[in-house]
Design a protein around this nucleic acid. Structure first.
Length: 351
DNA sequence: ATCCGGTGTG
DNA sequence: CACACAGGAT
C-alpha cells in the first residue's frame, strides 16, 4: 500500500470525518443544482460504454469552470482480464487535475492529480494503473514543528483574540439561545478590526423592533452598522420563521443568511454547532498560511489569492483536529507577531 | 473592483 | 491627518 506513505498518519484512521463534504462550501452558486444531483453515493453511474482492453478507470465528473476544479461524483474500477473484479470506490470529494489534462467520459486524462484525502487513502497503485499520480498530496515540511513553535510564542504573549472570541457569547444561555448569540456576535464583530465589543445581548424578539442602527452606532463600536443592522433583522426574522428561533444547522443554510459569508459560516458551524465543516479562514490565517508556504493555488506554487482559496488548500493536508484551533492560533500570532506589515521576525522562532 | 463607516497606524 | 483596513455584497 504505497500510497499510505504519502499521507500523514493523522488523517488516515477510519474516522468518519473524511466523509464530510469538503467541497460544499464553494458551491454557493451552484448549490441548488448540485443538491439534487449529488445524492450520488449510492449509484456510481453504471451507464457509459465499458471498455475492456485495459484496466479501466471510469470517472464521472462535474467541471466547474470558474474554479478550474473537477468534482468526482463517483467512480468505478474494472479489472477486465477476469471481468470479475469490480472495485467500486466511494465518492471522492476533492479532486484536482492539471490544466492540460482533458477529461471526457470515454477517454479520461492520462495524468491526473489526485489530492483528496479520500482519494489518497482509498486508491491503490494498481487501481490507478494507466494514470500517473503526479505530485501527490504532501503536507508542508515540518509543519508540526512550526505549529508547535507558534503555539509556544502564543502562550508567551496574550493576543486580543484570546479575550474576545465569539465562542464566549451567551455561554450561560440554553443551547438554542446560545447558538443565536454566537451568530449575532459573529455578525456584529466581523469587520471591526479586532476590537473589543461592548457586550451585546439582544433578545431575538426585541431585535425586530429595535432601532438597531442607532443602537449600534452609539452603544458599541460596530463597523458598517447600517448594513449590519438590516442584515441582523433579516437574520432574526429568518431564524424565527424558518428555524423556529434556532439558527440554521448546515453550512449551506448559514451561507444563505445575509451578512454571513464563508468565514463566518465556518466560524458559526465550529463554535455554535461544534460541527466542523471547514476551516475558518480570515485575513490572518490567509496571510500567514501563505507566508509559511502552507498553501498554494491548485497545481502551482503561487500564493493563494483569496481566503477561500486558502481554506481549500489548507484543508487538503491539515489534519482535521487542527481545523478549529488553527484559527485562534494564527489570528493571535498575526495580531502580535506575524503582523501584516513590519512583522516582528526578530522575536519569531519559526521564521 | 468597489463600497460600506469607523478605527488604528504612520 | 491621510490612509490602510476587514468580510461580505454587489
Amino acid at each position: 500500500m504505497p500510497l499510505s506513505l504519502l499521507r500523514s498518519t493523522a488523517l488516515l484512521p477510519s474516522t468518519p470525518l473524511g466523509i464530510q463534504t469538503i467541497s460544499s462550501a464553494k458551491m454557493r452558486r451552484t448549490r441548488s443544482s448540485l443538491n439534487q444531483e449529488t445524492p450520488s453515493q449510492k449509484n456510481p453511474g453504471c451507464d457509459g460504454s465499458g471498455r475492456s482492453s485495459v484496466p479501466e478507470l471510469r470517472v464521472f465528473i462535474r467541471k466547474k469552470r470558474v474554479k478550474k476544479t473537477v468534482e468526482v461524483i463517483a467512480k468505478e474500477v474494472k479489472e477486465e482480464s477476469s471481468g470479475k473484479k469490480l472495485v467500486k470506490l466511494p465518492e471522492i470529494e476533492d479532486f484536482s487535475y492539471s490544466k492540460e489534462a482533458t477529461h471526457s467520459q470515454s477517454t479520461p486524462s492520462k495524468s491526473v492529480r489526485l489530492t483528496g484525502e479520500k482519494a489518497l487513502s482509498q486508491l491503490t497503485q494498481t487501481e490507478i494503473k494507466g494514470f500517473s499520480l503526479s505530485d501527490p498530496l504532501q503536507p508542508p515540511l515540518d509543519w508540526e514543528k512550526v505549529l508547535e513553535g507558534i503555539r509556544k510564542m502564543r502562550s508567551a504573549e496574550d493576543a486580543p483574540v484570546d479575550s474576545m472570541g465569539c465562542e464566549k457569547a451567551g455561554s450561560s444561555l440554553p443551547a438554542k439561545e446560545r447558538r443565536f448569540a454566537v451568530l449575532v456576535s459573529s455578525l456584529l464583530s466581523s469587520q471591526t478590526k479586532d476590537q473589543e465589543l461592548s457586550s451585546v445581548s439582544f433578545k431575538m424578539a426585541c431585535l425586530l423592533q429595535m432601532p438597531l442602527t442607532q443602537q449600534m452606532k452609539k452603544q458599541s463600536k460596530v463597523g458598517f452598522y447600517t448594513r449590519k443592522a438590516s442584515n441582523l433583522k433579516k437574520v432574526a426574522k429568518i431564524c424565527l420563521s424558518k428555524y423556529s428561533g434556532d439558527i440554521p444547522s448546515s453550512l449551506e443554510e448559514l451561507l444563505l443568511l445575509p451578512g454571513i459569508g464563508p468565514k463566518m459560516a465556518h466560524l458559526v458551524m465550529n463554535v455554535a454547532w461544534e460541527n466542523v465543516q471547514g476551516i475558518c479562514v480570515d485575513t490572518h490565517v490567509h496571510r500567514i498560511s501563505n507566508r509559511l508556504g502552507w498553501v498554494s493555488r491548485p497545481g502551482t506554487k503561487q500564493k493563494t489569492r483569496s481566503p477561500e482559496e486558502t481554506r481549500e488548500s489548507l484543508q487538503l493536508w491539515l489534519p482535521k483536529e487542527e481545523w478549529v484551533p488553527i484559527n485562534p492560533l494564527l489570528v493571535g500570532f498575526g495580531q502580535t507577531i506575524c503582523t501584516p506589515l513590519r512583522p516582528r521576525c526578530a522575536i519569531c522562532t519559526v521564521k
